[in-house]
Write a protein that binds this DNA or RNA. Structure first.
Length: 290
DNA sequence: CAGACAATAT
DNA sequence: AATATTGTCT
């Protein structure tokens, strides 16, 4: 109700990402269950890994820049898998509880979503749980967000620190991820006399992005680490339209940015052998709208 | 319990 | 190096 409010609000609007960029996203992280369904059983080494069930759905290592070729037919009953696991606790009760999820890979897109969520929430309300809920990324945990948020804050401070110095060498190697996303101005002035409020929802409703907003697969299939993700989301055949089950764990009444749960493409669990042990990572590749 | 943040671990 | 985990306060 202050004039200042209108002030930053105007600026804010301009800075806000286009509706097209915000709404169409409906991301889904792979959940342990899903991961399992897709699981590429990892015969190599396993101390306490999740390879306990001889799944048949193996994912052929496809070439980078090729479509994901999701198991067409009927192996997508992830929900079923989930239920099955939960239902039959033969020996191992609720594996999902004991299993370690793969490390989350913060792709620029995912980070973008993170930033957008924080931007819309306002610094005040941007706490891990809320952010997580708004991002609406299935499988994303509060810890994931908290950890990322912590890093992100450090990044912001760093930036403010050298914004007056003129020479800003934000070591690209240190935070190229953060650099890939535009930082809302308000993030940069905590000293500004304004309390962040949360946006009453972006008045976006009509835009329906058509394009394949779903993902493609990680590029870490081979030791040829292609850091370049040029054209995912565009399968030549354009037919990765599987009935993926968006597992929506009774979420809070928080309105999410994402559009209604439509379809979601799981990320991918790959094992990095090149630079890691037998570690698995969860790679989520949301729409390549950049 | 949830959050921030530093330190530490993998 | 990038995330996760842990510990300590609040």
């Amino acid at each position: 109700m202050r004039e200042e409010d209108s002030n930053w609000f105007s600026r804010w609007e301009e800075e806000l990402p286009s509706p097209e960029e915000l709404m169409p996203l409906s991301q889904t992280l792979i959940t342990p269950g899903l991961a399992h369904a897709f699981d590429i059983r990892n015969p190599i080494n396993n101390n306490n890994n999740i390879n306990t069930s001889p799944n048949h759905v193996s994912q052929p290592s496809q070439q980078p820049s090729q479509q994901l070729t999701p198991p067409p037919g009927g192996n997508n009953q992830f929900a079923a898998e989930n239920s099955a696991e939960l239902g039959s606790g033969a020996g191992s009760d609720e594996p999902a509880r004991t299993l370690k999820r793969p490390r989350l890979v913060w792709t620029p897109q995912l980070h973008k979503r993170f930033v957008d969520a924080v931007a819309h929430l306002g610094i005040k309300n941007a706490v891990p749980k809320t952010i997580m809920q708004l991002m609406s990324v299935d499988g994303l945990t509060r810890e994931n967000v908290a950890s990322h948020l912590q890093k992100y804050r450090l990044y912001l401070k760093r930036m403010q620190g050298l914004s007056g110095g003129g020479n800003a060498s934000a070591d690209p190697a240190t935070d190229h991820l953060f650099a890939s996303s535009p930082v809302p101005p308000h993030f940069l002035h905590p000293g500004r006399g304004n309390s962040e409020h949360f946006l009453p929802y972006v008045p976006v409703a009509a835009l329906q992005h058509h394009q394949q907003q779903m993902a493609a697969v990680a590029a870490v299939a081979n030791p040829h680490y292609h850091r370049q993700m040029g054209h995912f989301g565009s399968p030549p055949n354009g037919q990765f339209e599987h009935p993926f089950l968006a597992r929506q764990p009774a979420q809070q009444p928080v309105h999410r940015i994402g559009a209604p749960v439509h379809n979601s493409v799981p990320g991918y669990v790959e094992d990095l052998e090149s630079a890691n042990g037998g570690r698995k990572v969860l790679t989520l590749f949301p729409t390549g709208d950049d």
